[in-house]
Design a protein around this nucleic acid. Structure first.
Lengths: 124, 124
DNA sequence: TATTGACTTTGAGTATACTCCAGGTATTAT
DNA sequence: ATAATACCTGGAGTATACTCAAAGTCAATA
């Protein structure tokens, strides 16, 4: 799979794919003799995981550390788990902050709707 | 209320408070004759609102526009509501992305725990 | 009144996470 | 064979949101 195809499949730019590989967010991608990236199953799984976690705002630094430990083998499992647990805690915090903001927005929007008249209110 | 007191109260640095005022995220803060900021009730309400929305990741640009419209008066209510509705939609999207990541992290953490043995597992 | 510490502005610097560009190589179509 | 297109690397540039620094002013106190 070329970088263009992978880019399309995961809706991540080629530049970002190369960037993620360069900083170690995903392991080195296999190459053709010519030196061109040929994304395989494993590369794709990493891309999908990182895309998911990044879209939720997980810090790249933590993900780089996780990926580096993964490549170091079995002895790093404890630490890897700790990273995931820490990131989970951070996401739960973020979730709470978003919920607070949502409550606040809902309350304000309701006030505006009361004043402006709901668009989908009763016909007469 | 001085900037230092306000900074302590809302856990926002003085630099950030000045920055928010400068870019119009909060309305101009009243000053003493000497030109020193004297935060009042209304300033505080704005700070609290912005702190809440920013912590959830709402873009500063949208908040600046909201604050600017607010200062322009009643005629801007429709647009102000629209901004809030749009930001709410974005927060709901983010919420979903975080939930996806949480599901994923939970699944991975469980696997690690199964292999490593739960710390809080049964004593024998 | 003089010094200390908090405050002021303006503008530059930083961190994070990309994003783009130049100059060159590889692959595909004609 | 050659032209067009996709890919490569290394490094510079950008956007967002602060954060810090310099040089000066204000306020409380000894």
């Amino acid at each position: 799979m070329t970088i263009a195809e992978t880019s399309r499949k995961y809706k991540v730019t080629a530049d970002t794919l190369r960037y993620y590989e360069r900083i170690g967010l995903i392991p080195p991608v296999p190459r053709t003799k010519g030196g061109i990236r040929d994304y395989d199953e494993e590369s794709c799984r990493w891309i999908e995981l990182m895309k998911c976690l990044r879209s939720a705002g997980v810090q790249i630094e933590a993900l780089i550390e996780y990926a580096a430990l993964y490549r170091q083998g079995e002895g790093t499992m404890e630490r890897r788990k700790d990273i995931l647990v820490e990131q989970r805690a951070q996401l739960l915090d973020r979730m709470g902050e978003i919920q607070n903001s949502l409550d606040r927005l809902n309350c304000k929007i309701e006030k505006y709707e009361k004043i402006l008249g709901r668009k989908d209110g009763p016909g007469l």
